[in-house]
Every structure is written in structure tokens, then in C-alpha cells.
Write a protein that binds this DNA or RNA. Structure first.
Length: 405
DNA sequence: GACTCACCTTT
DNA sequence: AAGGTGAGT
């Protein structure tokens, strides 16, 4: 039986791409709840389905390594079939610290061993991780505009927005209401395993493609998903799929929203059952190229109040449309055209599972933080106040520009 | 336009 | 009580 690939078993079955940790951190980017399809299958090794194939990804300091698996259904290109089970070096350090472990145990030369004639896989990765967007430059800009961001940025580097398939993103996020990441992951996994095309099996785990629109739209789907523990979301999924297929022209409609202006795309998505402001914004940001969108949930609202003394919705009990708008505008303003990307960094830094990264900062990080603190105390409040004052005016301008986009 | 509550399931 | 939506007031 096939096994999950491990870089420590040798680089023969792997290809690589130059990519530093400051541009991409797999653990944060794949684990922060934007995609629910990736699992850590080995120390620092992430396995998931993307672009209709199964991938394992891992990284060393300046290199992103990738391995894809053959599946019966895919017309196999002669890619690395040699997954030697011989040297299964299982965590030679035996530590649970993943990023550290990888750094220590892997010093291979960043050489692409197996050729990828079409560069098809390289293209897929470049597109999925949007590697042409220079994250380091954006972090600098956000840090300039926002002292609090700067204090987080030293630890949470390389948090990047994925460019996901719109359908997968939409149906995954319909599952997110009243829900948390670990349970959503389980639901999406069950969704794929019961309705998606099987791709391959590795170490007792079977990997499936995300279900097609047709599979999701079938009348039997609601009952099926209720059995799988989807609750009231079961109906939303089936009905949304049905509606996209019937009243819209299927996949083309979803894909087409990539070139539509933000507000238009968001309104279009909101006609679907189970899609409110939060889900629509997530789909816009994570699959429809709307980098400026800041999806607002109760969590982001807390961050706005706690870390930015943002007054938006202060007298409110619940997250109304108005509060959504105000918080979104506030952050769009602070961070600019890639505000949605910046938001995901803060969001990530606030997740319980990543809190341990803050506990043992390296000496270098501590020094950086001291510097930041001094700066923040000097100019922080004044700057925030100023931003808030000019918020309304600038936002109108911003939206206008966007509508023309 | 803005607010409340029921809806599922798990912690 | 939760990382939300939709129907009703």
C-alpha cells in the first residue's frame, strides 16, 4: 500500500520551488481555517487535495518541496513513482515542535530532481499560493501603517491567502456557521469521502476530490448530509448547489465572479441559501480575488475592539449588517487594498492552536518586540485616532474605485 | 434599516 | 456559548 511521502526519505520523488519562510509558512497558511483540506501527515509535511490531485508539501528554509501521487483517474504523467519505503525516518528528533523539527533535520540542496516538463504542477502551486504576491513587501507596508500588526508580524510570518476553487470554498464556508475549525474539517472530510471522486489511498487514508456541483445538487444529498452530522446546513448545501445549477449557469457563473467587482460578487453570492455577509466575504477573499475584503465575524469584532479600540458597533449586541460594514471599512482603511490578507495574519495569531508560538520567542524576536513597543508607545494612539476620523470619507472613495474596477 | 430568536451540534 | 443565517418584528 502507498504511503505518505517524506522528504527525509530522499528528494528523488520531490520537486521544488524557491520560496522562503517569510513568503510562506505552510503550518500557518494551511492550518488557519481558510482551507479545511490539509492535514499534517508527517513532521512539517502537509497532505491535501488541490487541483484534482493529491499533494504532500513541506518546506526547508528557502525551498518549498512538493510531491504528487498518481491516481487511477488522472492521466498519469510519468512523475515520481519511486516512493521508497526504506528510509522512513520518523521524526529523528522525536519532538513535537514542527517548524523547528524541519529546520533542524533537513539541510538538502534546493534542487528540483524530477523534471516537470509542462511546469503544470509548478503553475498550480504558484496559482494556489499566489506566489507572485510579495508578502514580505506587504508585511512592511502593514507594519508601517499599524503598530499592532508590526508586533504580531515577527512571529506570524508567511501567512498567505490561498486562491481556492470557488465552489470548494463556497460549500466549505456554508459549513462554518456556528462552528469551529476542527469540526468543520471533519465535516468537509466526510462530505468529500461520501460524495467526491476517490483519488488515492495513503496509509489507510483515502483522499477524494471535492464533490461536483451535480453530486451536491442531488435530492438525496440533504438526508445524506444530515446523517453525517451537518444539521441544518445539509439543506443549505444541497439547495445552493441546485440553485447554482438551475438559475445560474453552473461553474461558469461562480468562476465569472472573479472578474466582477466586489460588491456585485458579494450580492450575487448572498442570493444563495446559507450565504450571509460573513460567508460571502470569505468566498470573495479566498477564491474570487477580492484581496481587500475583511470578513467580519464575532472574533474579528473582538479583535477590533480589543486591539484597536475600534468604536464600531460599540452599543450593539449583535453583528448587524451595519457593524459588518463599519468593522470591514475600518480595517480596509488601515491596511489598504490587501486588507483581507492582513486580517488573516491577525486572525491566525489569535487562534488557540497557535498561541504556543508566542510563548517561547527567540532572542532575536524579543529584541524586535522591544523595539516595536517603544515605537508603539510613542505614536500608537495618535495614529489610530487619526485613522478613525478619516475612515468614512476614505471608505466612500475606496468603494467607488472598486465599483469601477 | 436594525434587532431578536430559532436552528444543529459539540465543548 | 459558539468564527452564522434567515425569518419575523
Amino acid at each position: 500500500m502507498s504511503q505518505h511521502a517524506l522528504l527525509s526519505a530522499g528528494t528523488k520523488a520531490w520537486r521544488s520551488l524557491a520560496c522562503s519562510r517569510s513568503e510562506l509558512r505552510l503550518d500557518l497558511t494551511l492550518g488557519c481555517g481558510q482551507s479545511f483540506r490539509w492535514r499534517e501527515t508527517g513532521d512539517g509535511h502537509w497532505t491535501g487535495v488541490m487541483g484534482g490531485r493529491v499533494w504532500t508539501l513541506t518546506q526547508t528554509d528557502d525551498t518549498l518541496w512538493y510531491h504528487t501521487y498518481n491516481s487511477p483517474n488522472t492521466t498519469a504523467e510519468g512523475d515520481g513513482r519511486k516512493r521508497k519505503a526504506g528510509a522512513l525516518l520518523q521524526g529523528s528528533k522525536g519532538s513535537g515542535k514542527r517548524s523547528k523539527g524541519v529546520k533542524e533535520q533537513e539541510d538538502e540542496e534546493p534542487v528540483a530532481v524530477t523534471p516537470d516538463p509542462d511546469r503544470k504542477e509548478e503553475d498550480l502551486l504558484n496559482d494556489y499560493f499566489q506566489l507572485k504576491v510579495k508578502l514580505g513587501d506587504l508585511y512592511s507596508e502593514w507594519g508601517e501603517a499599524d503598530p499592532h500588526f508590526k508586533s504580531i508580524a515577527n512571529i506570524f510570518t508567511g501567512v498567505r491567502m490561498l486562491r481556492q476553487d470557488p465552489a470548494e470554498c463556497l460549500f466549505s464556508f456554508i459549513c462554518t456557521s456556528n462552528n469551529h475549525i476542527s469540526r468543520i474539517q471533519g465535516m468537509v472530510e466526510r462530505l468529500c469521502q461520501s460524495l467526491g471522486t476517490p483519488l488515492c489511498q495513503l496509509d489507510q487514508t483515502s483522499y477524494h476530490d471535492f464533490p461536483s456541483l451535480h453530486a451536491l445538487a442531488d435530492n438525496s444529498v440533504e438526508a445524506c448530509l444530515r446523517d453525517l452530522g451537518f444539521g441544518y446546513r445539509a439543506r443549505f448545501l444541497q439547495q445552493s448547489a441546485r440553485q447554482i445549477l438551475d438559475s445560474h449557469s453552473g461553474h461558469q457563473w461562480l468562476q465569472g465572479l472573479r472578474s466582477a467587482p466586489y460588491l456585485q460578487a458579494r450580492d450575487a453570492l448572498r442570493t444563495l441559501p446559507g450565504v450571509g455577509p460573513k460567508v460571502a466575504d470569505c468566498v470573495c477573499l479566498m477564491s474570487l480575488d477580492k484581496a481587500c475584503v475583511v470578513p467580519v465575524d464575532t472574533h474579528v469584532w473582538q479583535i477590533a475592539k480589543r486591539d484597536y479600540s475600534c468604536a464600531a458597533g460599540n452599543g450593539q449586541k449583535s453583528l448587524t449588517d451595519k457593524v459588518h460594514r463599519e468593522i470591514g471599512d475600518f480595517f480596509r482603511h488601515l491596511w489598504g487594498p490587501y486588507a483581507g490578507w492582513a486580517h488573516s495574519v491577525l486572525f491566525c495569531a489569535d487562534l488557540k492552536k497557535f498561541q504556543k508560538l508566542k510563548e517561547t520567542p527567540s532572542l532575536k524576536q524579543e529584541e524586535e518586540e522591544k523595539k516595536v513597543k517603544i515605537k508603539v508607545e510613542g505614536e500608537g494612539m495618535g495614529r489610530n485616532k487619526k485613522i478613525r476620523k478619516t475612515c468614512d470619507r476614505k471608505v466612500k472613495k475606496y468603494v467607488k474605485e472598486e465599483e469601477v474596477e
